[in-house]
Structure formats: structure tokens, C-alpha cells
Amino acid sequence: MKLSVLGGLGVADFLRAHWQKRPLLVRQALPGFGGLLSPRELMRLATREEVESRLVIRDGRRWHVESGPFAARRLSRLPSRQWTLLVHGLDLHLPAAHELMMRFSFVPLARLDDVMVSYAAPGGGVGPHFDSYDVFLLQGPGRRRWRISAQTDLSLVENAPLKVLKRFRSEQTWVLEPGDLLYLPPRYAHEGTALEECMTYSIGFRAPSHTELATQFLVYLQDRIHMPGMYADPDLRPQPRPARIPAAMVRQFARVLDGIRWGPREVEDFAGVYLSEPKPTVVFSPPARPLGRKAFARQAAHRGVVLDIKTRMLWGRRAVYINGEAVPLERAPRQQLARLGDRRRLPPGTRLDPVTLDVLYQWYRAGYLDLGAPKSAPSPPK
């Protein structure tokens, strides 16, 4: 995996000195980076139902936000200045965007979220704001001016259709050109303004709030809890105040709820299921004419297997997790599948044990993975 996105800085040095601490500007992180798709192709994506997109237009001090999908006619009639088209989850639709995201896998895949691309007319932007997560901003074609601030005042403009800082005080200013990269820690105020027609690729990371984690964990537990018994009150006495909740009932409820237990194993399983859950818009396409198991085994040995770009796969001490599903496995097959999760592929010639082959075949039938390129196929041109 190439780590040139950090320039001459080592990964360990970056994580120690910058990650969630202070910004980093890398000039020519990807020299001559020309982007992954044209504005026309991006607009075509924004017309699709399964693609999340937004349009942000500035009119003086007022902001207008529209959500996609958009009619092609709407996009063709945009003004000449001060608008931005945002397309989220580009990595779910464009293999090159997924490859770009994987350049940042020196951070655990459980933290990687998506690649968003913004296409802006001159003067376009989304205003001064902050993100609650880490972000790498990679400049594609065109130039964008970034103003950033470590300010602690993060109050927002009331009733605005997007989160715009009420009082933004710039402390540093940079102009990014194609191939430049800017890293910003969470809650670091910033404002990007297109100096000319430009495209910026944002690699974002997951940072769920503690409330979201607690809520989702309780949802996870509700299908996995079995508490024998039923509420009973054989010693019930006449109640002079019938609408009052009896203290004995509250105590019995408390004893029952106190019996709910979980440990590291349950938490790891929850983390694997929760963090590998696909986004709501993701739909997998099983093969129209799937191979039989024996034919699949032969082809997998000859061609290897590759995870679908929409597949999220993680692994833990006792199981692997794929697209919100937990697959408990013994050590040997789990090790082979862990390599698949780390590398997103298993190369031709990999000797697969029967259990691993069974799991891979099920995932192939579900559309989670596909066969790789034939072993004898020439390398693609660079």
C-alpha cells in the first residue's frame, strides 16, 4: 500500500504529532492529481436515486440547500458563481475512489467512512464550519483557498439550512492546488472557497457519538437477550392510591434489569456488526448466473477473489464481520478471511480450506465479492 499521501512524513510520526491534534498541509501529496471523474460525470451521478448528493448555493448572506437526486435540467441551469455540488459516498460507485480511500488505511478500516467530492463554481463553498470527525482534503482540478482556525467558539448561525459558524476568525490561510492535501482534526473550524472552477475530494472518518453508540448497542442487545420468568406479585395488598406505581414493582423491575449482562465478547461482536453495516442506500447485486460451488472453487484458485467496493469487512478475535453480519469461525479459516479483510482481495493460487471456501461461496452468491482477474491476464496500463 502506497503511503505517499503523507509526503516525507512517516505514518507513526503523523499519528503521533498530528492525528486528532493539529492540522497538516502536504504539498503535492499526489503530484499532478487530476481528479477521478469529470464535472459532467459527477453531475450524472447526482441524478441517480441511489447516490446521496446536495447542492449548496450562496446568495449574499443567505444559504440555499437542495438534496438530490437532481434533474439534469436543474444542474444545467446553475449560476456562474457561488454554488457547490456535493456527492457523498463516491467510493461506493467508483472503484478509483475506493482505491483512493484505501490509501488512508493506515487508520483502521473500522474508522474510514467515505469519499465525498465537491464541485464548485468560482466563489463556491459551504461556509465556515467544523466537522466532528477527522478529514483529509485532497485538491483535484482547480484551486481552493482554505482558511482554518483552532477557535473554541463553535456556535452556529440560527435557522440556517446548514451548519455555518456564527463567528469565524481565520488564523491560517492556504491555497491548495491539484495534488495538495490538507488534514484537519475534529472540530477544527475551516472554510473552503473555490478561486476558480474546482473539485475537492474529502476522505472522512467515522466518529459516532457516545449517545449513538449506547442507543445502537441497546438495539443490538434487544434481539439477543433472553430473561426467563415473568413479573409476579403474589403478596399484593389493597392499594389506597391505585394510580401510584408501587415501590415493590419498581424494585422488581430494577432487579430484572440489573440482570442484563455483557462483556468484551458481546461488545466486540456489536462493534463488528455496527461498524460493518452498509449505508442505507447500498444494494448488492448477486451474480445473474452464479457458478456452482465446484466451478467457483476452481475459478477462485485460478483468479483469486476481490471484495465488492461496497462491502465493509472487519474481523475480531472470534469472528469476521461483513456488511452487518457476524460469522463466527475457528482460528484457521478466520486467519484466511482476515487477510481478505485487510487486503480486500485474496490472490490467485491461495489454498483455501473447505470452511473458508464455503463462506466465500456464500458471499459470492450474495454479491459481497467477485472473482478476480484471470491469473494470466496482463497488468493494466499505468
Rank of each mutant, 00 (worst) to 15 (best):
K2G: 05
L3R: 12
L9M: 15
F14C: 00
G32P: 12
S38H: 15
R40A: 15
M43C: 15
S53H: 06
S53W: 06
R58D: 05
R58L: 05
R61H: 11
G89S: 01
H98D: 06
L100K: 03
L100T: 05
M101S: 02
F104Q: 02
V107D: 01
V107I: 14
L109R: 15
G123N: 11
P128Y: 12
S132L: 08
L138P: 02
L138D: 06
L138T: 05
G142N: 08
R145T: 15
R147N: 02
D153I: 12
D153W: 09
N159L: 01
P161Q: 03
P161W: 07
L162Q: 09
L162S: 08
V164W: 04
R167Q: 13
R169T: 12
L182Q: 02
L184T: 03
P186Y: 11
H190Y: 10
E191C: 13
E196T: 03
E197I: 15
M199G: 06
I203V: 14
S209R: 09
T211G: 09
T215C: 08
L218F: 13
Y220V: 08
H226L: 02
P234W: 09
P240L: 07
R241V: 15
R241L: 13
A243L: 14
A247K: 03
A248E: 14
M249G: 05
M249A: 14
A254G: 08
E266F: 08
D269S: 12
F270V: 09
P278I: 03
P278V: 01
F284R: 00
A288K: 11
F296Y: 08
A297E: 07
R298H: 15
A300K: 04
L307Q: 01
I309G: 01
K310P: 00
R312E: 00
R317E: 14
A319R: 05
I322Y: 00
L329M: 03
R331N: 12
A332K: 15
A338I: 05
A338Y: 02
L346M: 08
P347I: 03
G349S: 07
T356K: 01
V359Q: 15
G367H: 00
S376R: 13
A377G: 10
P381E: 14
K382C: 15
